[in-house]
Design a protein around this nucleic acid. Structure first.
Length: 564
RNA sequence: UGGGGCGUCGUCAAGCGGUAAGACACAGGAUUUUGGAUCCUGCAUUCGGAGGUUCGAAUCCUCCCGCCCCAGCCA
């Protein structure tokens, strides 16, 4: 966590803040906020915004609030606020005692509306939603004024109070800002400020039957909190003139809104709506499915907050829309886990190996290094015996060129153990599949070194059969086959779902030191990747999620060989 | 066709009139009891295009082209 708030590279937002500070704007304060709507789980795109907002506050010695923009009771739930709070904490950020809700400002927002009505800047409109849409005009044609646009402030005040009192049915009237129906910016064509909605709110219950729209709430909420820099994504750029109009008309503190490009990640989707659809339609196991780019999904998969933060730092902040390669995220995870995760041996696709000349019943405890990147993590003992398991991929009856692993007659090293030579191959009579190997070991090579100095090209991981722990391993691949899943003509983006995004392996064999691994425990399965114990683990059977594979040079070689 | 943005290496991204940072990816090589890690090396004579200003432009001006967002009583 030492790198939280570490000095980061520059970006256009910092330049704006630096310029503001230089001229003494906002009394030298820097106060940001992260304003999620509690209607879904946070994802990596939010992480980018969180790192930006909280990071800026830390870097400039300012503050960052957490505020829930809960203005639509029909879509918001306490479950979501809980998950959001947990996710931000997990990422490593702290908002002190500044946890706010836009709904706490409902009374004040109401007074703001009254003030605009009194100033003749807002009016109650009886048009239906459909009629409002029709009179809004189009992108190229101006809209037409509502027939209710010129009601007197007195009449508007009366109507608005009665709206609040519940005298009118849902959707029958709205309060609108009186701006300009001919504006080139559609957001300025008398936008709706309040709607009648009889829905119970997760915070205010049934106190209100009218709710302010996001557009009438967001800017003023920032203003109320004294936010100096309101950082948001590009799609709100066209709303900025409206937010400016409201705070100017109200004569209240004017935060400066700055927009940046939202994150897009290859082979996945980053939009609450799309993620919700994946969950709702059962494409994944839930919001925290390890394939999901949600914070909870990444956490379950084994990503570290440090890696996520490093990623957010490296992608930078700009206004240009982009599609970041998932490979960068994976690199950040490997980089972090490489120096922290303890190594362990696990065979995920077991092939039985009998060491013919090893004494029956004999067991040796061999010393293994926990993390070559960090000597402080020490060593452990791993049991070795006559019957072992090695990876099926580590044996080829007919080895291709550059294949350094086991094959008939070839000698390889078993990590931390002995050199072994394959002397026989047992096959299933019916299928022809290799089901067992017979090898001999060289007693002189204990620990993995040959006294005569002879070298072997390959080193294999292994697990002693009688000591092995059983369990399941879940391998994950991209959720979508295309880098940009939404890039579909006519088709549904779900058609780009990767049918092989999840591969479940059972009958996996783990070294005994993994006994009792708690959910969330992260380690490296040597030569394979980083894994994280899943919450589905039980004392009887372990379940590991593959966070990310190790870089696999052999796979690349094999691929280019196949390509020839 | 209205308004608002954006266009620099395969992907992100610095650059702010003085002659194209860095990262990921990729390709070589060294090293290695993880074909991991680490370490070297290479990788935009060019900045969407065309003109112009200037001794000098990715940076300034003009025009053009392309992409994105906005017509929820969603956020």
């Amino acid at each position: 966590m030492a790198d939280v708030g570490a000095k980061s590279s520059t970006n256009f937002i910092k330049e704006i803040i630096d310029a503001d500070l230089k001229v003494g704007k906002n009394e030298g304060r820097v106060h940001t906020r992260f304003p999620p709507e509690p209607n879904g789980y946070l994802h990596l795109g939010h992480a980018k915004s969180i790192c930006l907002n909280f990071g800026l506050a830390i870097e400039y010695g300012g503050l960052c609030n957490l505020r829930f923009d809960d203005t639509n009771p029909t879509k918001e739930e306490p479950e979501y606020v809980e998950s959001i709070i947990g996710d931000i904490k997990w990422l490593g950020f702290d908002w002190g005692d500044r946890l706010f809700y836009a709904s706490s400002y409902f009374d004040q927002l109401y007074e703001f509306a009254v003030k605009l009505i009194k100033h003749g800047k807002a009016y109650v409109c009886d048009l239906s939603a459909e009629e409002i849409r029709k009179t809004r005009g189009t992108l190229t044609a101006p809209g037409t004024n509502s027939p209710f646009r010129d009601r007197t402030p007195e009449e508007n005040l009366d109507l608005f109070e009665r709206m609040r009192a519940g005298e009118f049915p849902d959707g029958s009237r709205v309060l609108r800002a009186k701006i300009d129906m001919a504006s080139g910016n559609l957001n300025m064509r008398d936008p709706v400020m309040y709607r009648i909605l009889r829905a119970s709110h997760h915070r205010t219950g049934d106190k209100w039957c009218i709710y302010p729209t996001y557009d009438f709430t967001h800017g003023q909420s920032d203003s109320i909190e004294g936010i100096t820099h309101s950082i948001c994504t590009l799609e709100f750029e066209a709303h900025r003139p409206l937010y400016d109009w409201y705070v100017e008309a109200l004569g209240i503190h004017h935060p400066q809104q700055i927009e940046f490009a939202p994150l897009n990640l290859s082979h996945t989707v980053l939009s609450k709506r799309k993620l919700l659809r994946l969950v709702a339609e059962g494409c994944v196991g839930g919001w925290d499915d390890p394939r999901m780019p949600t914070i909870s999904g990444m956490r379950r998969r084994g990503y570290t907050p440090e890696a996520v933060r490093a990623f957010c730092e490296r992608i930078g902040v700009a206004k240009r829309e982009s599609l970041v390669d998932t490979a960068l995220l994976e690199h950040c995870v490997r980089e972090d886990l490489n120096r922290r995760a303890p190594r362990v041996m696990a065979v995920i696709r077991p092939l039985r190996v009998v060491i013919d000349n090893y004494p029956e019943g004999q067991v040796e405890e061999l010393e293994a290094i926990n993390n070559p990147e960090d000597p402080a993590q020490g060593t452990r003992e791993v049991p070795f015996s006559r019957v072992l398991y090695v990876e099926q991929d580590d044996f080829r009856e007919d080895p291709p060129g550059k294949f350094f692993r086991l094959s008939p007659g070839r000698e390889v090293r078993l990590r931390y153990a002995y050199y072994i030579t394959c002397v026989d191959v047992v096959k299933d009579a019916a299928t022809g599949d290799v089901i067992e190997l017979h090898c001999t070991y060289d007693p002189e090579t204990r620990g993995g070194w040959a006294p005569d100095g002879r070298k072997v090209k390959g080193t294999l991981h292994w697990v002693s059969a009688e000591h092995a722990l059983d369990g399941e391993v879940r391998l994950y691949d991209h959720l979508f086959t295309k880098p940009d899943p939404v890039d579909v003509e006519g088709a549904d983006w779900l058609s780009n779902l990767n049918p092989r995004s999840l591969e479940v392996l059972t009958g996996c064999k783990f070294e005994p030191s993994l006994a009792g691994a708690k959910p969330g425990y992260r380690c490296q399965f040597e030569r394979q990747g980083y894994f994280c114990a899943d919450k589905d683990s039980s004392g009887k059977s372990l379940v590991f999620n593959r966070t990310v594979s190790l870089r696999d040079t052999w796979a690349k070689i094999e691929k280019t060989q196949a390509g020839r």
